[in-house]
Every structure is written in structure tokens, then in C-alpha cells.
């Protein structure tokens, strides 16, 4: 039993890693993914090299323990997205 929102796509409610073509990687709970953008809730963001960690290093740690929310929500435009992966698959 639970709350479901089947109309928002397969990734709705799933924690995803959104790598960008720039320096940032975003990790958050996907609300919806459209042709224009992906909207995330409870978002963590890491900039490549910040605190001495690459984007890959940061994602690897997040896959083990989870993320610290830095933003309530954030939308990433499609043209800025390099890849979208499920954190649970990493």
C-alpha cells in the first residue's frame, strides 16, 4: 500500500543522477522528465573538483550512503543534460 503517481513517467519518485555537460552533477528524486527538462526534488549538487572530489567520486559515495539535500527542487534543461541514471543501479 502506498501513494503512487503513475502518470508522471517511469522515473517519478526515483532517485536519479543527472550528469551535465558542464561541471555539475545533480542527484535528486525525479518528479518528471519532459522534452524540455527534468525536475528533481530534494536535490544534492556537486561541482567537479569541489572538496577534492570528482563528479564520479561524489556519485560513488552517494550510491553507498545517499545524499544530503541542498535544494528543495531544481529543474535541469534538456540541453544541459549529459546522462540520467538511477542511483540505485550504480
Amino acid at each position: 500500500m502506498g501513494t503512487f503517481h503513475q502518470d508522471k513517467g517511469d522515473l517519478h519518485g526515483i532517485t536519479v543522477v543527472v550528469d551535465t555537460v558542464g561541471h555539475e552533477v545533480y542527484i535528486g528524486r525525479c518528479d518528471e522528465m519532459t522534452e524540455e527538462r527534468i525536475l528533481l526534488h530534494d536535490v544534492d549538487v556537486h561541482r567537479d573538483g569541489e572538496d577534492g572530489r570528482s563528479k564520479d567520486d561524489y556519485v560513488e559515495r552517494a550510491a553507498r550512503f545517499g545524499i544530503w539535500k541542498k535544494l528543495e527542487q531544481f529543474a535541469i534543461p534538456t540541453e544541459a543534460i549529459a546522462s540520467v541514471r538511477r542511483l540505485g543501479d550504480l
Partner: peptide
């Protein structure tokens, strides 16, 4: 041992 949400939600 700890299982965070993201290792539950897609399984």
C-alpha cells in the same frame, strides 16, 4: 548495515 531509500525504490 544500512539500506538507503534509493536502494529500495527501484527494486
Amino acid at each position: 548495515y544500512f539500506v538507503p531509500r534509493h536502494r529500495i525504490e527501484s527494486r
